[in-house]
Design a protein around this nucleic acid. Sequence first.
RNA 1: GCGGCUAUAGUGUAGCGGUAACACUGUUCCCUGUGGAGGAGCCAUCGCCGGUUCGAAUCCGACUAGCCGCCCCA
Length: 420
Amino acid sequence: MKYQTPTGMRDLLEDDLELFDKILKNAQKIADFYRFKKIETPILENSEIFEKGTGAFTDIVEKEMFSLTTKGGDRLTLRPELTPPIVRAYIENGMQALPKPVNLWYAGPCFRHERPQSGRFRQFYQLGFETFGAVEPVIDALIILTCYAVLKSLGLKNLVVQVNSIGCSSCRPYFKKTLTSHLKKSLSSLCANCKGRLKKNPLRILDCKEEKCERIKKSCPQILDHLCKNCHDHFKALLEFLEPAGIPFSLNPYLVRGLDYYTKTVFEIVQESGKSQGSLAGGGRYDDLVKLLGGKPTPACGAAIGLDRVVLLLKGSQEKKEKQERADVFLAQVGDLAKQKSLILLESFRQAGIDLAQTISKDSLSSQLRTASKLEAQFSLIFGHQEALKDQIIVREMSSGRQKTIALAKAVQEIKKRLK
RNA sequence: GCGGCUAUAGUGUAGCGGUAACACUGUUCCCUGUGGAGGAGCCAUCGCCGGUUCGAAUCCGACUAGCCGCCCCA
């Protein structure tokens, strides 16, 4: 095969698209209920918003972005995630003046240059919720609840929210120092990757899955013990909202996430049991990002759901039903004159709201009727040269084979009556 | 970026050194204006390039892609 989709990118055919549509529909309802407004942003953005927003030392920015330079010299990047673009849009469209909180939701493709595997593509689809202008921990709970509700509405089982707090700009630097000095003691036992992380982003070491590092992690100071009072109270309050909301959650002190902008709450939703394919959704609070990207200091919180992964799970759970394509009525035509008059006839049925199928490019009557059978049409309209000359048409009841000739002008009316 | 496995019609498979087979789908015909059944035909330069060989879908090597792990995340 000469041409195929680029690595990690695929065509979405009807089977997939139906599931995507279903998720989107459910999300739309839930978003409406919780008063989120939909937003769409460009697929290309100025590279800087990711370098600053997502973070220069994140894997995403260091090695996973599809970037290009325009003829005019602008550096653009295919969005690897949507939070920084949404923040950009929030500022650019003057939403800072809107009554708070401002709730936005979105769905669309993102791009990351990674090695594809199960549930991971270079072009993948995210659906997310963002809320601006509220510091209250109940908002964090609401964002989690909203994501959880979307996943739940699709019938997914065994969902668990893993939560953690990674502190804020006033307490995290201290923790980083504490952690770094602790880790320096066992520097030689860290994996190569983490040795590098020690300077750039020591928190990420907590997230390392290498066995070596796993062992060291156990003896590490935990961030939850080093939060400032504000962060501590925020986290405690969040948990007190989740509990009665009936959302199953577990504390994961090692959850730090790979994006730089998070403050306080971070969370991921995973499906327990069954094959793990990474998280289904993830998000958190990002109180400093709006300011970082040039807006007024604005607290914010958001999350995104990985649609591809959800679709994968939905596909696995539903048994394949070969859905038969069907039609109520089928038009079979024979001869040039009949074919010429067929288009206007089709239009009159379409306008009357009657499902009239055809294979108008075909000439053979038998093959057309074979198709009519396959479509399980109740009636076929047979429009031959003789009928076309006299402006008549044959109505054939497929089950019995009884047929009668009627005036062409009465075809719509006749079929309407018979279908009842 | 690093590993493991794989690559034959649209789909699912067989073939394991002597120039492609089966099922389903599609399509044409048997039936120059009447379907559901039946029958016949057609639809593949065996992922790409190179090597070994008298001969390669089959063996070997590189490439490309896919799947699955790692990493990371959604």
